[in-house]
Every structure is written in structure tokens, then in C-alpha cells.
């Protein structure tokens, strides 16, 4: 079993939004919606400020509240890579999953079903990289299998300091931010 994960080097990310454009193009994300986005976090007190730029998306959690609360099973964990997906023709659009996500990563597609990042499963299950990772000009984005200790993502997490978003929510997210 593979465990797909994404590792973002926040020291390299410049917030150029190439990943956002690539995702919208690759996945035909409708106008006015985003499956991934850029967050700029500024910490500290003037003049001693620290800024972190990071690209964010669904965290494909190991303990996904969106899957637990789904009444029809439309939200589910995929066999490959533990990726969290939505089966469109099983979703009733109740929005419980949208409310259950501490990352606000989901939205309701204009066609009525819940939508979000899929880690580009149509590409990654064939061994390709997600669209966002493949276009990143600063190479700050890394994708791979955490269950393989020799993978790039495993090595990066073993050698660098990192954090995840909202660890207190208890969702065990799989998008990691190198600091």
C-alpha cells in the first residue's frame, strides 16, 4: 500500500500561483473556484517579522472527517495512495463534508457535487506527478510515497524540519511544509 504525500519547501515557494493555474487547467476547475491556493502567513512584531508563503490544498488526511460524515459514501479513501476522493454521482450535495473540513479545502461544484483536490489521481496512479508539482518553477513542491523510505518525500521529512496545518484538528494531514 502506498501513502501519497506532498512536501512543500516554504523556503523556496514564492507564491507565483503557477500551481493554481496548472490545477485549474488540468482539472477544468470552474471559474470562481480553486482546488489549491496560496497562503501567506506573517508572524511576529514589527520590525521582527517572519513570512511564510505556501501552496495549500486538500490534505488527504489519514483520519478524514469529510469521509466519516458523508452519508452516502461518495467521499471515500481511494485504494491507491490513501487519496481522498468524491464519487460525483453518489454525492447528494448535503455539504456536511464542506463543514467538516478544518482546511476549508472543499467547495460545491456548480454542477452540485462536492469538489476538491484529488492529488491528480488520474496522473499519479500512472506514476506521473500532479499537475501543480510538475509546473512549479522553483521546485518547491515534492510528491511521492511516504511508505517508501527511499522516496524523495520520505527523505525530505527525515532530514528537514516541517509542520502541517492545524495538527490540533486531529486529521493526520499529508501535506507537509518544510521550514
Amino acid at each position: 500500500m502506498a501513502r501519497f504525500a506532498m512536501v512543500i519547501d516554504t523556503r523556496r515557494c514564492v507564491g507565483c500561483m503557477d500551481c493554481v493555474v496548472a490545477c485549474k487547467t488540468e482539472n477544468s476547475v470552474p471559474e470562481g473556484f480553486n482546488r489549491d491556493w496560496i497562503t501567506t502567513a506573517v508572524k511576529g512584531k514589527m520590525p521582527d517579522l517572519h513570512m511564510e508563503i505556501r501552496t495549500e490544498r486538500c490534505n488527504h488526511c489519514s483520519n478524514p472527517p469529510c469521509v466519516h460524515c458523508c452519508p452516502t459514501g461518495a467521499s471515500h479513501v481511494h485504494d491507491i495512495g490513501g487519496v481522498v476522493l468524491v464519487t460525483h454521482n453518489e454525492c447528494i450535495g448535503c455539504k456536511a463534508c464542506v463543514a467538516s473540513c478544518p482546511y476549508d479545502a472543499r467547495f460545491i461544484h456548480p454542477d452540485g457535487y462536492a469538489d476538491k483536490c484529488t492529488f491528480c489521481i488520474h496522473r499519479t496512479e500512472k506514476g506521473e506527478l500532479p499537475a501543480c508539482v510538475s509546473v512549479c518553477p522553483t521546485h518547491c513542491m515534492h510528491f511521492g510515497d511516504l511508505d517508501n523510505p527511499e522516496s524523495e518525500v520520505s527523505k525530505l521529512l527525515n532530514s528537514r524540519n516541517y509542520h502541517v496545518n492545524h495538527p490540533a484538528a486531529g486529521t493526520e494531514p499529508h501535506v507537509y511544509y518544510l521550514t
Partner: peptide, 15 residues
């Protein structure tokens, strides 16, 4: 203190 700025403006989600 931490100030967060998002580029995301999803309908019914943001702000």
C-alpha cells in the same frame, strides 16, 4: 500574532 492571507475565494467558503 499571525496574519494569514489567502488567494482562495471559493463561493460560500470565503471569507
Amino acid at each position: 500574532m499571525e496574519e494569514l492571507t489567502h488567494t482562495r475565494h471559493n463561493h460560500l467558503i470565503d471569507p
